[in-house]
């Protein structure tokens, strides 16, 4: 199912876009999303293992379902402050 993903910081620079629509299986989890990103957005591969995935306002666990969510975000480790 079509699922939009927002990118931030270096992930946005590498992906070359702020928003990307992916086609995920209905049962796709955050772990699945990471795998799909590695294939569909090869430019993310250098930072793929460190990317954080957020669903809504929370960090997703590998098993968190993400397909069809409208509030998915992917970004590298944070560095505010």
């Amino acid at each position: 199912m079509k699922t939009a993903v927002k990118f931030f910081a270096r992930a946005r620079d590498l992906a070359g876009t702020m928003l990307l629509e992916l086609d995920l299986s209905e049962s796709a989890t955050a772990a699945d999303l990471r795998a799909v990103l590695g294939v569909q957005v090869p430019a993310l591969q250098p930072i793929l293992p460190s990317l954080l995935i957020a669903v809504g306002n929370d960090y997703a666990a590998p098993t968190t379902r993400v397909a069809g969510r409208t509030d998915l975000a992917v970004f590298p480790p944070v560095s505010g402050g």
Partner: peptide, 22 residues
């Protein structure tokens, strides 16, 4: 989820992402 990007004096820029190569 806030990130900083360094603007170094040599003109290069670099996101700061702890735990990555950057």
């Amino acid at each position: 989820p806030i990130w900083k990007k360094e603007n170094w004096i040599d003109g290069s820029t670099e996101w700061v992402h702890p735990g990555t190569d950057e």
